[in-house]
């Protein structure tokens, strides 16, 4: 266990160093921007992975919380003149409250019904963004979200925003790692291994799932906040069903129940459109194929799946 902790410490220190080095020395601002998006997506993947990977509960409507974070800060800063730094906790809190209220009945469902329930919830929130145009700007979107500033530091420049986003990613990683290594995390993994046995040792599975659902919503809302102040303009399309599916795809590729997998999944899914020319035409076909192929052949995700295959071929060659 101590080994495990030292190894984690080294990992996170290296991670911090890489962030600092890339942030200071990468010249190309376009790449900085792409990396910033990867950071935001990593937060999303991390949030959903806590729910799907560790608590074993699927959500096909998680973009709703991402959207609540983004629209929350947009509405508060533009309509009510809040400082973004006040809007941040307010937006996160709203997402948490919504998650709590929705979570109580939804998390009683399991399997397909949970999938449909969360899907329906995501759709309703998206319809709300689209139809409540006096507040959200409707289908045409919400313009004029202010840039972030902290005293003399402006986050309008790509580099500072990069540090801000990746700072949150680092904090998010460490926080989630600590949860997983704690009493709560053990109970979560216990639910995953066997819900009956978990209840039999005294784990209140319902309450725990709800807590993780709320936590997951909070991280998603944080990502939404960061997204809104990065692009200054948001529209319902960014938080639609496809956005929820994109989150699921990131988790599935990276591997469920893996913190670093979130980084891998988010990176691949952000970079894929950059690499594949004319990707947008094929975006959905590619996501769909990825989801099916990974789930059929590598249900433990890309990283572990490939490692498994490597192990197997090595063993075969030894014989």
């Amino acid at each position: 266990m101590n080994n495990h902790q030292t190894r984690n410490r080294i990992c996170y220190t290296v991670f911090l160093l890489i962030i600092l080095l890339v942030g200071y020395f990468l010249e190309n601002l376009y790449y900085i921007q792409v990396l910033t998006f990867i950071g935001i997506n990593t937060l999303l993947a991390l949030a959903l992975n806590m729910l799907m990977g560790y608590a074993g509960q699927i959500s096909l409507g998680h973009a709703a919380f991402y959207g609540i974070g983004a629209y929350g800060t947009a509405i508060l800063t533009v309509h009510y003149g809040f400082s973004p730094w006040l809007a941040l906790p307010a937006a996160i809190l709203s997402a948490m409250i919504v998650a709590y209220i929705v979570g109580i009945p939804t998390l009683k469902l399991s399997g397909y019904y949970l999938g449909m329930g969360t899907l329906g919830f995501g759709m309703i929130v998206n319809i709300l963004f689209r139809e409540w145009s006096s507040v959200t700007g409707g289908a045409s979107g919400f313009i004029g979200i202010p840039a972030l500033e902290l005293g003399p530091i402006s986050f309008a420049s790509g580099r500072n925003y990069f540090f801000l986003v990746w700072g949150f990613v680092l904090i998010g990683f460490i926080a989630c790692q600590r949860i997983i290594d704690s009493r709560i995390g053990r109970a979560l993994r216990a639910i995953h291994d066997g819900e009956n046995a978990a209840a039999a040792v005294g784990v209140d599975t319902r309450q725990l799932k709800l807590q993780i659902f709320v936590l997951s919503a909070a991280i998603s809302a944080l990502a939404g906040f960061l997204y809104a102040h990065l692009v200054y303009f948001i529209s319902p399309g960014s938080f639609s069903f496809i956005a929820s599916i994109r989150m699921v795809t990131m988790v599935v590729i990276g591997g469920m129940a893996s913190i670093w997998g979130a980084l891998l999944g988010a990176s691949l899914l952000t970079l894929l459109p950059e690499w594949l020319h004319a990707f947008s035409e094929f975006e959905m076909v590619v996501y769909g194929l990825i989801l099916m192929v990974v789930m059929i052949f590598l249900p433990r995700g890309l990283t572990r799946g490939l490692l498994d295959i490597y192990e197997r071929t090595r063993k075969k060659n030894e014989h």
Binding site: L60, Y112, G115, I245, M284, G288
Partner: peptide, 13 residues
């Protein structure tokens, strides 16, 4: 669920 959702996105594409 993930496979059939994948199929739905695929068919849509």
């Amino acid at each position: 669920i993930i496979i059939t959702v994948g199929a739905s996105i695929f068919l849509r594409g």
